[in-house]
Design a protein around this nucleic acid. Structure first.
Lengths: 349, 349
DNA sequence: CGACACCGTGGTAACGTTCCCACAGATCGG
DNA sequence: CCGATCTGTGGGAACGTTACCACGGTGTCG
């Protein structure tokens, strides 16, 4: 693709080839009006002949728009965040914009490094799921940005896109209640994460609405990982008696770990323990039993985040705070104790 | 972070602030030698005072190095490819290089679009898992690049990084044979994919070594997805008699789909059907039974691909063809028929 | 018929950096 | 003691593009 004298063709090469000035070439390529049919024709021919591809660096330099967007997420390897990234990628591609993806590992130092990188790259804007204790820096970030995830709450004056946690929790608590589990145990994430507080608050609010004392709900906490969920569930099983237990996990990995712990304790899910997850990662479909879970619209969050970011860059409209609804995915990890013949008795327990 | 008169500080702002020329600032920041202690000091102070961050666009424009690398994979949402991307990301970050990630969905058109985008962005190099029928374009790609995945074979003259399929297949066939499954069925991917041919050839080679006629191995083919694996396994079960069946799936998603199909057919894995996967995605640990599989070193492939790409860019050394070894992960999806009391009889079949 | 708008085009100055050359002063070897 | 080399610095061109201004030609209106 380097046609002219071994180097890549520039706009000047195209102009020479077409016998016009580079201004005219720029106008044709920029989709500007007021160009003679003939000039447009010759320019277009010259472009293909020379194999010209605009130099985005030069464009960015001159126009102030680099054609680059960045997204900073905890980990591309996490299925939920991969979905978000993919949504952003697809949406950006539609605008001929490329996406830089960074993984922060919930590490403030890494995040700072990535933020520096993307500023140097002169990205036109950034989508960020910020690490908990890194607030101050964002306000003087000096770049259009959109927040994703639970952290949005802490920044009332910025655009954000996330899932509607309150609605999701309501959905989850209701499906548990409908199966006879009015007081599920909670498998929470670590204290330091913003998502934990958001989840817990929604549970409390919902309990108050339903005249349940939130304080009586058993709780365990762990990392948002399979190992964490496994440990938390093991602790919970030791702590609790032999009655049927229902747990609402703060994410699917924890839920999957919990199911493994149940099995290893010689118990059965859903016969002895009902488990409800949160995220909707594909792996939940392969577990046994299939994980009943609340699915967050990961991809949609990515798409809408880019939408908001483009608005932000263009200076259009207000800072929007968008909360997308979640969806219940019923599989087999919740026992229906409300039925005439409760599962637990049918199982001969 | 925009300190000087509302705009972002440039090297000239720093120079003025420090009372030196921009050349001196550039030398200090470029780590050049021959700078007085005093000048360096004042420049460094001026940098923090102005909040200066080099404009990577301008750097790229002038120096010809954009500080950007790109990776084109089928889908970031696929756990294996996410691992590869993550490895590349981490390795690139160590060199202060940012990574553009593109998902091609195995679609030649999308791939072409992405290739165009990354060329416009003037990335310094690219890591590509090319779509099957898109060969010609790569030879005149005009940019340093490294191939990843099975396609490497078709390009003897380019650097590539992949897993050692022959070794992986040997590992898999041997572990199956050791459990008494000498002639496993093969669950292959679609004909159009290069990976399929590579896998199949390794199986053939291994069979020849072990005096097995490859033609007697039952085969089914499908997309590299859970649904595909489910359908393929269903067809296979219809086709085969009631003896214990062992299958070697070409990837983990197919294997997971196969396990689901076995369960739905009222059979048991591993009691009636043994399943071996290939990839090592995390979801394999959550399925029931846990999926025994051959783990590809996804992250390592990403890391080494960037290594090779940096060599390629620097013009160092030969074009390397790297094949990384795979690892067996034993979980519970293979029955041991070689034991004194075969599982199948113990299960009362 | 003259003033004026508009169309299509070309020329040129930036954008922020690096690279190369020039130059003044210090150091050094013969 | 003088030419040569080295050290530390400054000046300016160039990278490829876009934005702006200027210009000749044509049509329109009073």
């Amino acid at each position: 693709m380097n046609n002219v004298a071994g180097r890549r063709a520039t706009i000047i090469d195209v102009a020479k080839h077409a016998g016009v000035s580079k201004s005219t070439v720029a106008r044709v390529l920029g989709g500007s009006t007021n160009i003679s049919e003939e000039a447009r024709d010759r320019v277009l021919k010259a472009v293909t002949a020379t194999g010209y591809e605009p130099n985005q660096l030069a464009v960015g330099m001159r126009s102030g728009r680099s054609g680059l967007l960045a997204i900073v997420i905890p980990d591309v390897t996490n299925p939920f965040w991969a979905e978000v990234a993919r949504g952003a990628q697809d949406r950006a591609a539609r605008e001929d914009i490329s996406l830089l993806i960074f993984s922060s590992d919930w590490d403030a130092d890494k995040e700072a490094t990535h933020l520096r990188s993307l500023r140097r790259a002169r990205v036109d804007g950034a989508i960020i799921n910020p690490v908990a204790d890194n607030f101050g820096d964002l306000s003087r970030f000096g770049l259009p940005f959109v927040l994703i995830g639970s952290s949005a709450e802490r920044f009332p004056d910025t655009s954000s896109v996330g899932s509607d946690i309150a609605q999701a929790v309501r959905l989850g608590m209701d499906v548990l209640a409908a199966s006879g589990h009015r007081q599920p145990a909670l498998l929470l994430g670590p204290r330091s994460r913003l998502a934990r507080a958001r989840f817990l608050r929604s549970v409390h609010e919902h309990c108050v609405e339903r005249d349940i004392d939130p304080a009586i709900l058993p709780m365990e906490e762990s990392e948002y990982t399979v190992e964490g969920g496994h440990q938390a569930m093991t602790r919970l099983l030791e702590r609790k008696g032999r009655e049927h237990l229902a747990v609402f996990a703060a994410n699917d990995l924890i839920a999957l770990g919990a199911i493994m712990a149940v099995r290893e304790a010689g118990l059965s899910c859903p016969n002895d323990v009902s488990v409800l997850g949160f995220d909707g990662i594909p792996a939940g479909a392969f577990s046994w039993p299939g994980l009943t879970t609340i699915e967050k619209p990961g991809r949609q969050i990515g798409v809408r985040a880019v939408d908001s970011l483009l608005d932000e860059i263009a200076g259009r409209g207000e800072h929007g705070r968008i909360f997308l609804p979640c969806r219940l995915v019923q599989r087999g990890s919740i026992a229906d104790l409300s039925a005439q013949a409760p599962v637990r008795m049918a199982a001969g327990g």
